[in-house]
């Protein structure tokens, strides 16, 4: 049974994504550290802020991703309005020849929380323009549903604000988003350590996107490896089916055997 796990590849808008751990590049001390972390993470898709780099002349990060054979997921970090995000996405498509975009429209610098009104507006425009839109969204099941309705290829709710490492503050909302979604759900932002990445997968997310948790760790390469294992473990656990929570203990080797309940 577990042998099939490798075949259960994540598919976003008909595109196979080899690893369920999607990474970001921000925060690494240098390119060599970033390279070792990316390799250790096993990621096949990495997001890059279009406003921080110049796609035309190529940069250290873009050259590095090309050399490692990692697909680039351009993002619109730093955009505050739908109009800005649409413009940035179009420039990214032109420069990188990809219709993938991680849509980020944040409301303010202090929280970096998504602005839901601008986000939905931008998502609608970009979907109509032929983009494969992966929106970074609040952990709001209603907004997630609306993003899916306008044609987003995935929804990417936050666990907690970007860079905080506070983990998943509202697991029940994430479960509701997962239960409702007909597109992949990617837990994006807030992961601080491996157990939180595993938790995201156990809650039913299809993938985890993280950057700071790895790039700012004391040993980024080791943390990247830990995240890779955590995502695999959480995914396997979710599909293995956990036992119910019980109030009282239940001996795993009962003194008197009874017939197990029918599983019908």
């Amino acid at each position: 049974m577990h042998g099939n796990l490798a075949d259960e590849t994540l598919v976003v808008a008909g595109r196979k994504i080899g690893s369920r751990l999607i990474t970001g590049t921000g925060g690494a001390a240098n390119l060599e550290v970033l390279e070792r972390a990316l390799v250790a993470s096993g990621t096949t898709l990495t997001t890059v802020a279009m406003r921080r780099i110049d796609a035309r002349t190529g940069t250290g990060v873009l050259d590095l991703l090309r050399r490692l054979g990692i697909e680039v997921l351009p993002n619109t970090a730093g955009c505050r309005t739908a109009a800005e995000a649409v413009l940035t996405a179009r420039l990214a498509r032109e420069a990188l020849e990809t219709d993938l975009v991680k849509l980020e429209v944040v409301a303010d610098e202090r929280t970096l929380l998504p602005d839901p009104i601008e986000l939905l507006d931008a998502a609608e425009q970009l979907v109509d323009d032929g983009f494969t839109v992966l929106p970074y969204t609040n952990d709001d099941p209603v907004l997630a549903r609306k993003l899916e309705q306008v044609g987003c290829a995935a929804v990417m709710p936050l666990g907690s604000p970007i860079g905080t490492g506070l983990g998943i503050r509202n697991p029940h909302n994430i479960e509701m988003i997962v239960a409702d979604a007909g597109v992949p759900v990617v837990l994006d932002a807030g992961i601080g350590t491996a157990s939180e990445a595993a938790q995201a997968m156990e809650l039913g997310c299809d993938a985890v996107l993280l950057a700071t948790a790895v790039t700012r760790a004391a040993d980024p390469e080791r943390m990247a490896h830990a995240m890779r294992l955590a995502v695999e473990a959480g995914y396997a656990a979710r599909h293995a089916g956990r036992i119910p929570r019980r109030y009282w203990a239940q001996a795993s080797s009962p003194e008197t055997d009874r017939e197990p309940p029918e599983t019908g």
Binding site: R52, I53, D54, R56, T57, T59, V61
Partner: peptide, 13 residues
């Protein structure tokens, strides 16, 4: 700190 090729213009942001 950002990577913008050989751009040496300071931005408002």
């Amino acid at each position: 700190q950002s990577e913008h090729g050989f751009d040496t213009e300071p931005t408002v942001g």
